[in-house]
Amino acid sequence: MNVLNFVNAFFSDSAHWHGYDGIPQRLLEHVHYSALALALAAAIGLPVGLITGHTGRGGNALAFIATAARALPSFGLLVLIVIVMGFGLLPVMIPLVILAVPPILVTTYEAVRTVDPSPVDAARGMGMHESRILFQVELPVALPLILSGLRSAAIQIVSTATIAAYVSLGGLGRYIVDGLYQRNYEKVVGGATLVAVLALVTLAVFWAVGRLAVSPGVRRR
């Protein structure tokens, strides 16, 4: 398999390690785009998911919004927005956020909605305020599932952020698009490897967050 040779050649070329086109710079850009997009998507998806999940209302509307958002093609949206708005970070953020909101929204909603009703009723019976029920009873129990939604969203963002390179932004996609036009497979395979590794690191981060944040009593399996 010559793919491994490409990987080796790519990473051992010292020219790939510094400057505006170096791996550290491109990696940083990629993490920057991904983290920003995830933060924006979470800022939209989490509150809406928590509230609708808590009240149990609006499930159908949410499912509809999520379906519509998922149906929008990220790549097409990116190209369209760049044609209309020109370059910049915003044209990349819009499709990435639209990509990431549905998994966060839907899993958060489902997670809160499916919390065992007995402790919730007990809390309500004790006279707990609804917001305290949400944050102190439902949220801790729902957390593992909410994190899994965030995790899927993060993985999709990391993988999809590569398309930013097509509209001349940076990130690891730069190597893939440049490699396509320069017919340099070393770059393509190297770039794809970096993206896959970044995805695995993302998984590891979420695993660690899960270990730290999820109360031992709720941990499943």
Partner: peptide, 29 residues
């Protein structure tokens, strides 16, 4: 274009023939 970055009729030639070194290169179309 992305290929301009590595072509002789591109960044490489601009450097070797005219001694031009730009701040950075932006891949467009």
């Amino acid at each position: 274009s992305p290929e301009f970055q590595t072509r002789h009729q591109g960044l490489e030639g601009l450097k070797s023939v005219y001694g031009l070194e730009f701040k950075s290169f932006k891949a467009l179309d």
